[in-house]
């Protein structure tokens, strides 16, 4: 089956500095691919090139087999792109924004009516159709932007940090909507800086300084974290810090009342022993995606 999105060795430099090197990915219908990385990692650059808004320095982007550079006009109806910045007209109402984008995509009056109803119901924006977009809450703004992006029923949805700056409850809601879309057969490519969101993607790529430094299913990635984490409850941080000093490279993190000690596998035995002598019982803590992410960013990969 032809992948909905197929990117090969995509690269782009800004003023001679590489912003994205050698990005490759494939995305099938119904799939949800996460692009994770800190600010400036190259996420937006990659997505803009995939939409044909930027010309790549190298590599190619294919949407349902069509080349974005060559067949731009044919591809536009297939893609829905939601930029990182709120990109609707704040002085126009919810309804007027929807109407403008449906007209921009050349929908007939019947189609427009039909989809408007459906999208308003889907995004739960019905009570606010006459409100100006600028007066909506952050979460509602993003839902309206999503609705406008979906108005032409694209096969591929590209979302650039859609929930940055949105409250946790609205983020949850938004991702539930995305899940519905994926189940409906749409292909989604989403960038996010949030790990909890990344966990909801079927496959994720960690992007750092323009390069993919790790990728896989979220569970695989956290499992491949090469170090061990020990958890201590209610211990005195000062005392533990003293004790740990004897072990090179062990890192101490505080999470409320608990302490996380991150060590190499071969240090684990000795560390546990030293803690036990101080009457401290350490429990193993399964690594999270966040642990894997920080390690990968600090070391350039998930290798030990």
């Amino acid at each position: 089956m032809t992948p909905v999105l197929d990117i090969r060795s995509l690269a782009r430099a800004w003023d001679g500095k590489p912003a994205l090197r050698d990005l490759s990915l494939t995305l099938q219908a119904g799939g949800m691919l996460g692009l994770i990385g800190p600010d400036g990692a190259g996420k937006t650059t990659a997505m803009r090139m995939a939409c044909g808004l930027l010309r790549p320095d190298g590599g190619e982007v294919r949407v349902l087999g069509l080349d974005v550079q060559r067949d731009g006009a044919a591809i536009r109806p297939l893609i829905g792109y939601m930029p990182q910045r709120f990109s609707l007209y704040p002085d126009l109402s919810v309804d007027e924004n929807l109407r403008f984008f449906s007209e921009l995509h050349g929908l007939s009056r019947d189609q427009r009516q039909q989809r408007r109803e459906r999208l308003l119901a889907f995004s739960r924006l019905e009570p606010f159709t006459r409100r100006r977009a600028g007066a909506l809450s952050g979460g509602m703004k993003q839902k309206l932007a999503l609705a406008c992006t979906l108005i032409h029923e694209p096969r591929l949805l590209i979302l650039d940090e859609p929930t940055t700056g949105v409250d946790p409850v609205s983020r949850q809601e938004f991702w539930d909507l995305l899940g519905d879309l994926a189940r409906g057969g749409m292909a989604l490519w989403v960038s996010t800086p949030y790990m909890d969101e990344a966990e909801r993607c079927g496959h994720i790529q960690l992007l750092h300084q323009g390069q993919v430094i790790a990728e896989g299913r979220p569970a695989e990635l956290s499992a491949s974290f090469p170090r061990r984490i020990l958890r201590l409850e209610g211990a005195d941080p000062q005392a533990v810090r003293q004790l740990v000093q004897a072990f090179a490279g062990v890192v101490l993190h505080r999470f409320g009342h608990s302490l996380h000690l991150v060590c190499d596998p071969d240090q684990e035995e000795g560390l546990r022993l030293a803690l036990r002598q101080a009457n401290l019982e350490a429990k193993p803590q399964p690594p999270t995606l966040e642990d894997a992410f920080f390690h990968a960013v600090a070391h350039g990969s998930l290798a030990a």
Partner: peptide, 13 residues
Amino acid sequence: ETGTLEQVLTAPV
């Protein structure tokens, strides 16, 4: 400036 151009440009206009 407001970023609205970005979304408009992805439409077939």
